[in-house]
């Protein structure tokens, strides 16, 4: 948690360097922008979860939490929520601001904001699962194996932008992601707490 600023800076860096590396007209800029945006959110979330349990694992705090009577899945859920509040929300606001500079269509930006909020929370949960799996092995492995799980979300995000550009039932995508999120936030804390307990065994 000490390094919550790192992922946000990474996000800003990618978004700022994007227009510098492209030498086309403005409408071409917009085409690539959204896919880059989703990928940057994904990457920032991946980096933010890198050390989410590592410190507590190494210094023995996790054992203390398991022994104490507080519910472990609840603790995990709380921790993920804090990460989202500290990293996910700022990144979503930044996504909104960056998109204002890219497109004249305000409805896209307004739609993009809740999508970023939801997807960052989903990514966070998925990568927390990955980091928990490879708790003592460094999180590159964990991120790699949970990456495929994030893929469907990326696909939905990509399709939703096309939908809103053509003005067709884009709310469905939002509801779909919300549905995914509601399942994920109830299931992931339990799986993660089970995985961590297995690690400590």
């Amino acid at each position: 948690m000490r390094s919550w600023l790192g992922p946000i800076l990474l996000f800003i860096l990618i978004m700022v360097s994007y227009p510098l590396t492209i030498e086309f007209l403005e409408q071409d800029l917009e085409k690539g922008f959204y896919s880059l945006l989703w990928i940057s959110i994904l990457l920032s979330m991946m980096f933010s979860t890198e050390d989410i349990f590592l410190e507590d694992y190494n210094d023995g705090s996790l054992e203390q939490i398991i022994i104490s009577s507080t519910s472990f899945p609840f603790m995990v859920a709380k921790k993920i929520l804090i990460y989202w509040l500290m990293i996910g929300i700022p990144i979503s606001i930044l996504s909104f601001l960056f998109s204002l500079g890219i497109t004249q269509n305000l409805s896209i930006s307004l739609f993009l904001f809740p999508m970023a909020l939801i997807s960052s929370y989903i990514f966070l949960n998925l990568f927390v699962f990955g980091t928990a799996l490879s708790l003592n092995k460094g999180s590159v492995l964990g991120a790699l194996i949970t990456m495929p799980l994030a893929l469907p979300v990326l696909i939905v995000l990509g399709k939703s932008i096309i939908a809103i550009q053509f003005g067709i039932n884009y709310l469905e995508f939002l509801l779909l992601l919300l549905g995914c999120l509601s399942i994920i936030i109830t299931v992931v804390p339990f799986i993660v707490s089970y995985v961590i307990k297995t690690h400590l065994e």
């Binding site: 799996l133 092995k137 194996i145 799980l149 799986i191 297995t198």
Partner: peptide
């Protein structure tokens, strides 16, 4: 690679099963 990175087999089995199911 996840399975080979553990020295305790029982642990590795459990974690692997969860990953398979989620994946």
């Amino acid at each position: 690679s996840l399975h080979t990175s553990f020295s305790n087999h029982e642990k590795a089995d459990k974690l692997l099963s969860w990953l398979v199911i989620v994946g």
